[in-house]
Structure formats: structure tokens, C-alpha cells
């Protein structure tokens, strides 16, 4: 359980990090808080030739409130975002979901963007990004681009990030008198979710986003539904997510959770 050998680069500026990624391409991995990547390295599931440590890049350590969105830089730790005084008011869904990310001992080091880069299908931050319809801000030595949450997650632990790109940050829309709900079922608090759901009221009805079932967190919008129409919609959604049996839970149990939690949360936000 020791990592294979790699070069270690401590970048002082974003351009240094981008330059290294441009040169080394797919043989390089970006190291932020390390709470996902270091475990992958220790188990040798990842064997990069170069680690680019971005945690001492000052310009990436920012939580910036803009008119309609909050931009969270790549080196903002989960605990730092949790402690941001405006969190509950500007990003209420993040305030609900973030305490479910890992444990206090990992949130203190792990970054918000690192969790997105890792793209575990059961992780809470990817689910939150998809539920809110946020954007990922990608940058390479040559260009910058913004990718919508639903296009960013390409599969289990796969994202739209190119080898030479750095996730500079994310942009999350600020809540406008919205109602939000989040719930997760896991073996223990802090373990990976068997099913996690986020719901929010939208202008036309309601949105439910589900993690832990499909390969990527998936959101669905409905007009205001209730009674059997809601049951039918949730049942169809639960099947469309393509749940599989695994060591943690059966596919049927996952579908049950989507139907039950989905109904509860939608009831909560449409109250």
C-alpha cells in the first residue's frame, strides 16, 4: 500500500501548473486535498509519472460571490466552504449536502473541486453540482472553457476534463427563494452513499437529482406532480437509472430508495 514512484511539482502559480499539465499530459495528475487521489495512489489504481500540487496557488483559493453565482476555486477545502458565513443563504443545497461528504477528518483536507474531478458516482458534490445546474471552469495553457454539470460527468470516475486541463473552479447559481432538500442512505454516516437524492423547487415544478444509482449523478425535471402521477414518474425514473446489484445493495433496494426518498423530498420542497 505505497504509491509507485512519481515526480512531485509544487506549483506556485496557475500558469506553472498548466505548463506542467501541457507537457506531461495524461501522465500527470493534479493533487489538491488528496483525499481521493492519495488512496488511489496508495492502492496503485493510479500510477502517474508526475503529481502537480496546486494547494499553494493563492489565486485558486477563493470563494467569490458574483451577481448570480458563487465561484469556488480549485484549492478551497470542503471545511472552508462549510465555514463560509453566506453558505446557507446563497447555496442552501450545498449547506445540506456538504456535511455528508466523508468525515470531519477528510473534509478538513479534501477540496470541493477534487471531489468533482474524482467523479465517484455516489459522491455528494457531483450530485449537488448536477442538481443545481452548475458549471465547471476548465483551463489549459491554451484556452478556458465552461462545461455544464450534466456534460461534465462522462461515466463512472470519468469526466470531460482533457489531460492538459485544470479544474480552475466551479460556478454554482445562487438560490433565489428556492426550497431544497437532501437525503442520503449509507451504511454509516460518511460512507459512500447507497443512494443520495437532492430535490429543489423550480419555476415550472420540481427537480430531483439522484446519485449512487447510475454511473453519473442524474437530474430529472417534472411539472408539479402528486398522487399516482408522481409515483409513476418516480418509478419510471428509478428504472431508467439502471440500478445494478452490488456488494452494498441490490438494484431493487436502490429503486425502492429512489421512489421513497424522491417522494419524501419532493413533498418537502413543494410544501
Amino acid at each position: 500500500m505505497k504509491p509507485a514512484a512519481f515526480d512531485y511539482l509544487r506549483a506556485a502559480t496557475t500558469s506553472e501548473a498548466l505548463e506542467a499539465l501541457a507537457q506531461q499530459g495524461g501522465d500527470a495528475r493534479v493533487l489538491a486535498g488528496g483525499q481521493s487521489l492519495m488512496a488511489m495512489l496508495n492502492m496503485r489504481l493510479a500510477k502517474p509519472k508526475l503529481l502537480v500540487d496546486i494547494m499553494r496557488i493563492k489565486e485558486l483559493r477563493r470563494i467569490e460571490r458574483q451577481k448570480d453565482a458563487v465561484v469556488i476555486g480549485a484549492s478551497v477545502r470542503q471545511a472552508e466552504l462549510l465555514a463560509w458565513p453566506a453558505l446557507a443563504e446563497a447555496l442552501p443545497l450545498v449547506a445540506l449536502a456538504l456535511p455528508w461528504v466523508g468525515h470531519m477528518q477528510t473534509r478538513s483536507r479534501g477540496t470541493v473541486c477534487g471531489s468533482l474531478a474524482h467523479a465517484d458516482p455516489s459522491a455528494e458534490m457531483p450530485l449537488t453540482l448536477v442538481a443545481l445546474g452548475g458549471e465547471v471552469l476548465l483551463r489549459s495553457a491554451k484556452r478556458r472553457r465552461r462545461v455544464a454539470a450534466k456534460d461534465f460527468f462522462a461515466g463512472m470516475m470519468l469526466t470531460a476534463r482533457a489531460d492538459d486541463e485544470l479544474i480552475e473552479g466551479i460556478s454554482l447559481p445562487i438560490a433565489r427563494d428556492g426550497r431544497f432538500a437532501f437525503r442520503e442512505v449509507a451504511r454509516r454516516h460518511g460512507d459512500f452513499a447507497i443512494v443520495a437524492c437532492a430535490a429543489m423547487k423550480t419555476s415550472s415544478g420540481v427537480r430531483l437529482a439522484v446519485g449512487g444509482v447510475a454511473d453519473v449523478p442524474t437530474a430529472r425535471d417534472w411539472p408539479r406532480l402528486d398522487g399516482t402521477a408522481l409515483d409513476d414518474a418516480l418509478n419510471a425514473f428509478a428504472y431508467e437509472l439502471g440500478a445494478r446489484d452490488d456488494v452494498h445493495a441490490t438494484a431493487r433496494y436502490r429503486r425502492d430508495l429512489v421512489r421513497m426518498i424522491g417522494r419524501d423530498l419532493i413533498g418537502e420542497v413543494l410544501q
Binding site: Y8, R10, G34, Q35, M38, A39, M55, Q105, T106, R109
Partner: peptide, 28 residues
């Protein structure tokens, strides 16, 4: 050695830290 058990937890710059998920080079 993959961040689950917590036995190696130390404090780095006031932050609770899994020392098995941290490189010595990172804490210079």
C-alpha cells in the same frame, strides 16, 4: 493506508489530517 480507519490522524496547520493520505513533501 487508504484513509478509512483514522489511526494515522495528525494535525497539520490546525487541520485534522490523515497522514496516510498526505505526502511528506506536501507538508514542507
Amino acid at each position: 493506508e487508504h484513509g478509512v480507519c483514522g489511526a494515522c490522524t495528525v494535525i497539520v496547520d490546525g487541520m485534522l489530517t490523515r497522514s496516510c493520505l498526505t505526502l511528506a513533501a506536501q507538508v514542507d
